[in-house]
Simulated scan of single mutants.
Amino acid sequence: MNICVFLSAADLDDRYTGPAREFAELLGKGGHTLVWGGSDAGLMKVVADAVEDSGGRLCGVSVEFLQHKARPSAHEMVVTKDLAERKAELLARADAIVIMVGGTGTLDEATEILELKKHGLHAKPVVLLNTAGFYDGLKEQFRRMEAEGFLPLPLADLVFFAEDGVSALAYIEEAGGIR
């Protein structure tokens, strides 16, 4: 299964890198392909290293202005002209989406994926990996949106909040990675 992971390319401490590495090892050992932003830096590198070291495959989708940071050893690397094209390409190649810790770029990717799902433009499983409670505030905001009628479908139909990599991958595998 092709599992797209949106995440930071920043160098982070072990409270984020440890759980990300554990999830990536599960992904690789399960024979899955990591579809990611293609960077060979920070948390993106940690995840790509662990997937590759565990026997998984790497499919990177970089963007022209970041091509110099692309991982040279990826099994496949696609370079897009801009960020919008990159997001579309990542989603097109994915059977499921996992959103790990990240900054504004990751948040932008997460909300776009959820907006597309809300409108029925994809039915792929989406998981927010809530490492160290990173997405607790976002989870609360989504619950408020649901309670106050801002979501046209139940929150559980949009996204699954996983507290660890085991439950994230179990959810994806159970959902079957709908295309």
Rank of each mutant, 00 (worst) to 15 (best):
N2E: 08
V5T: 07
F6Y: 14
S8I: 05
A9C: 14
A9R: 07
D11C: 06
D11N: 12
L12Y: 02
R15V: 15
Y16G: 06
T17K: 01
E22H: 11
A24P: 01
L27T: 05
G28I: 01
G28W: 03
G31L: 09
T33S: 11
V35H: 02
V35A: 04
W36E: 00
G38P: 01
S39E: 07
D40K: 03
L43T: 06
M44I: 14
V47Q: 00
V47T: 02
A50W: 01
A50I: 02
V51D: 01
G55E: 11
R57I: 08
G60L: 02
V61R: 00
S62C: 13
V63G: 02
L66D: 03
H68D: 09
K69D: 03
A70K: 04
R71V: 01
R71S: 04
P72D: 12
S73C: 06
S73D: 11
A74W: 00
H75Q: 11
H75D: 15
E76K: 07
V78K: 00
V78E: 00
V79A: 02
T80R: 13
K81N: 13
D82F: 09
L83A: 02
A84L: 11
E85G: 10
R86E: 00
R86H: 00
A88P: 08
A94Y: 04
V98Y: 04
V98K: 02
I99Y: 01
I99V: 15
I99T: 10
M100N: 05
V101G: 01
G102H: 01
G103I: 10
T104I: 12
E109L: 03
A110F: 03
T111N: 09
L116P: 06
L116R: 15
K117Y: 03
K118L: 13
H122G: 10
K124Y: 11
V126C: 08
V127P: 00
N130F: 10
A132K: 14
D136R: 13
D136A: 15
L138S: 05
L138V: 13
E140S: 14
E140H: 09
Q141P: 02
R144W: 07
E146Q: 15
F150Y: 12
P152M: 07
A156L: 06
L158W: 04
F160E: 01
F161R: 06
A162F: 10
E163I: 10
E163T: 15
S167R: 11
A168N: 12
L169M: 14
A170W: 07
A170S: 14
A170R: 14
Y171H: 14
I172V: 15
E173D: 13
